[in-house]
């Protein structure tokens, strides 16, 4: 097993350019043994590029990358027997059945499908293994990769937007599986572009944007990013929410008010809205892009 003090993933000052485009521009990432690490960023931020460098598929232009104590470029095949990877967009061989693909992937990682939890996972994810690759939907292709990953006991699971094609029921199965693997001591790198998806599972998160780390830390230390977006329809007069602490982006349109609210300011805002007579209320987590815009605007404002 891996030395428990050394980070499972250690990336420092990583640069990867495609032509003149710098996909990764001095990225740092550290994942310690046994944690679920959320890897967050909007589409195109460089999450998949980082993962591909970690898997030795892409060669880094500068910086250091250590994976499970080894060099992911030089020792790729050996390191890969100790991890499982689920790509964001799974493509299967058109003429191979799901069952064949599963067994192939498990065997290629050096495990025996018959001594794995393959059949149990097939059942839990409600996967029909007799279908051909070309006949699977996006969600089902993703399930094939997930079943192959969860069937064995790898030290590290690298999951790139793994739930993007799954329905809520399957998302629950997915969450259970991640919990089971962390319970036995596995480390998980979970990439996503939706904060709330990672919130449920992650111990720590790293936020990246344009190939650089914006924030990293425990979820608690990122509370300031966990705002809620509220849209309320009111029967009475619209109260002045902008005056309250922790309320941002207030916009009033007739009897409708929109704002984003910090977690600790929610009770005050809800009280004010209730007093004004709420006829409708929707709350949603803001997109990462919105959060980043906020963060940048705030920082630019503080600098002035």
């Amino acid at each position: 097993m891996h030395d428990s003090h050394e980070p499972v993933i250690e990336i420092h000052d990583l640069v990867k350019a495609f032509g003149s485009f710098r996909a990764l521009d001095g990225l740092d990432l550290s994942v310690v043994p046994g944690e679920v690490h959320g890897f967050l960023g909007p589409n195109g931020a460089g999450k998949s590029t980082t993962i591909r460098v970690l898997l030795g598929l892409l060669r880094s232009d500068a910086g250091t990358v250590r994976l499970l104590g080894g060099d992911p470029w030089r020792d790729a095949a050996d390191l890969h027997r100790r991890l499982a990877y689920v790509p964001g967009d799974v493509s299967l061989w058109p003429n191979l059945s799901g069952g064949e693909t599963l067994d192939l992937l498990i065997r290629m990682r050096g495990a025996d499908p018959r001594q794995s939890r393959r059949d149990e996972m097939v059942e839990r994810f409600a996967l029909d293994p007799t279908k051909r690759g070309r006949a699977y939907s996006k969600g089902n292709r993703q399930k094939v990769a997930l079943v192959a990953a969860f069937a064995t006991d790898p030290e590290l699971l690298i999951l790139d937007e793994p739930t993007s094609g799954l329905d809520p029921l399957m998302e629950q199965v997915f969450n259970d599986c991640v919990a089971e693997h962390t319970a036995r001591g596995a480390t998980v790198l979970l990439s996503s572009h939706i904060l709330s998806e990672v919130e449920r599972l992650a111990d720590r998160v790293t936020l990246i944007r344009e190939g650089r780390v914006v924030e990293t830390g425990t979820l608690d230390s990122l509370r300031h990013l966990q705002r809620t977006r509220l849209v309320a329809g009111l029967s009475g007069e619209v109260p002045d929410l902008g005056g309250l602490d922790g309320v941002h982006d207030v916009a009033v349109e007739g009897a409708k008010v929109t704002c984003t609210v910090d977690a600790d300011a929610l009770p005050g805002v809800l009280a004010a809205l209730t007093a004004a007579g709420v006829t409708s209320l929707t709350s949603s987590p803001p997109s990462l892009e919105e959060l980043f815009l906020d963060a940048y605007r705030d920082r630019a404002g503080a600098g002035r």
């Binding site: 598929l57 890969h80 990877y85 290629m108």
Partner: peptide, 18 residues
């Protein structure tokens, strides 16, 4: 096609070497 579609990635992320 295996490579452009992402199947090579799936295989090369296992113990199979380049």
């Amino acid at each position: 096609r295996d490579e452009t579609d992402g199947r090579a990635e799936l295989v090369l992320a296992t113990g199979t070497s380049r």
